[in-house]
């Protein structure tokens, strides 16, 4: 994980976060006088069937996608480290139980988790992120467990144990800091996947409130204009593909 990769990932997120701070227009302002506006100075990417500014909607969608990516990463890192290290440290049947559950949970499709989460907690990006993150906890746990197993066998962990360090501080001070870089890279390599998965969920109307602009939701909303105004579909699709490709590139996936 070199420095420019971190910079690239942070840069993508910062660009996406811009939509939370400033938009060229109100993304929900309807202006029926300028429907399907071409690219102009006032509307750099044109307007949609209700005269809403496309750039403003894309920027808000970017921020919502960034929330999803961050939530997925947080849930993955915290959950994976927690279960993985616990399994590695307790050993015995506790370890077997955690690993078996993690393996079984991989079978449950993301769609089902997202569906139930949306039905229980409502349609918010953080909830979609939580659902996508939970769907990833199984593999993260297995990954973190493999790492923690290797670290627990290191002499310095034996030394810490011999000095009387108990399990909690041992995990926080000696095990987790040593596995974080690898876990971070592993979770980061799924950031692009989170972007496309959230787009699919929003397209299905499962990820988020359909009245708020989401890249996937925009693809769904504008799909009937494919004959007359295909550019409406080009921008959100390009935003998804470019973001996912950049994340994948930053974390060298493919």
């Amino acid at each position: 994980m070199t420095r420019w990769r971190v910079l690239l990932a942070v840069g993508i997120l910062a660009l996406m976060a811009l939509g939370a701070l400033w938009q060229p227009h109100d993304p929900d302002a309807i202006d029926l006088a300028s429907r399907f506006s071409p690219l102009t100075i006032g509307h750099p990417l044109g307007t949609d069937h209700l005269g809403r500014d496309l750039l403003a909607r894309l920027m808000v969608g970017g921020w919502r996608t960034a929330i999803v990516v961050l939530t997925v990463a947080l849930v993955g890192i915290v959950g994976g480290c927690l279960f993985g290290t616990t399994a590695a440290l307790v050993g015995g049947w506790g370890e077997t139980a955690i690993l078996r559950t993690a393996e079984t949970s991989i079978v449950i499709p993301t769609l089902i988790i997202a569906l139930t989460a949306a039905a229980i907690f409502g349609l918010k990006p953080a909830i979609a992120g939580l659902a996508l993150g939970l769907a990833g906890i199984g593999p993260y746990t297995l990954f973190a467990h493999a790492l923690a197993r290797r670290i627990v066998a290191q002499p310095y962990v034996h030394a810490a144990r011999a000095l009387g360090v108990s399990d909690g501080p041992l995990i926080l001070r000696h095990v987790v800091p040593n596995m974080l870089p690898a876990v971070f890279t592993h979770v980061g390599s799924n950031a692009g996947l989170a972007v496309t998965a959230y787009a699919s969920l929003a397209f299905l109307g499962l990820g988020a409130d359909p009245s708020r602009p989401d890249w996937g939701g925009m693809l769904f909303e504008y799909r009937m204009f494919i004959f007359d105004h295909p550019m409406l579909l080009a921008w959100p699709g390009l935003a998804i593909a470019a973001t996912a490709a950049l994340f994948n590139w930053a974390f060298d996936r493919g």
Binding site: T196, R223, L233, I240, A241
Partner: peptide
Amino acid sequence: LAVFVQAVPSIWLGLILIW
């Protein structure tokens, strides 16, 4: 192809192909 399918969601590819 692998790099492509990991970035381009099938819905958008579908829309492009339809167009």
